[in-house]
């Protein structure tokens, strides 16, 4: 696969954050995500927050087990990052913004 990190400017970044209610952990994850996207993907990203308590059926489609889960729908391949995204380095690796 790609050895180098995906270019931040290549196309749009479609991100989904699955949470189950606005728990402190969910809020923290969303904050961490927004901050990171502003720094690395300014202008090319969209974040959709899916609250499973409101739309439980959506958990099935993306095979969500843990929350919070961040799913990178685009660019492909799909990536999943679970947890409150507090470890910024790991998130960047997970999103292919940093080489592994």
């Amino acid at each position: 696969m790609t050895k180098a990190a995906s270019s931040p400017k290549s196309g749009t970044w479609d991100l989904k954050l699955y949470i189950a209610g606005y728990t402190p952990r969910a809020v923290k994850a969303l904050e961490n995500l927004k901050q990171l996207c502003e720094e690395h993907l300014h202008g090319v990203y969209t974040i959709e927050v899916v609250d499973l308590l409101r739309n439980p059926r959506l958990a099935r489609g993306d095979q969500i087990v843990a929350v919070p889960t961040l799913v990178r729908k685009l660019p492909e391949p799909v990536r999943k990052i679970i947890g409150d995204l507090s470890n910024r380095e790991r998130v960047l690796v997970g999103l292919d913004l940093r080489p592994r």
Partner: peptide, 9 residues
Amino acid sequence: EIEETGEYD
């Protein structure tokens, strides 16, 4: 496919 960062349930 999974990267783990921080706490989750």
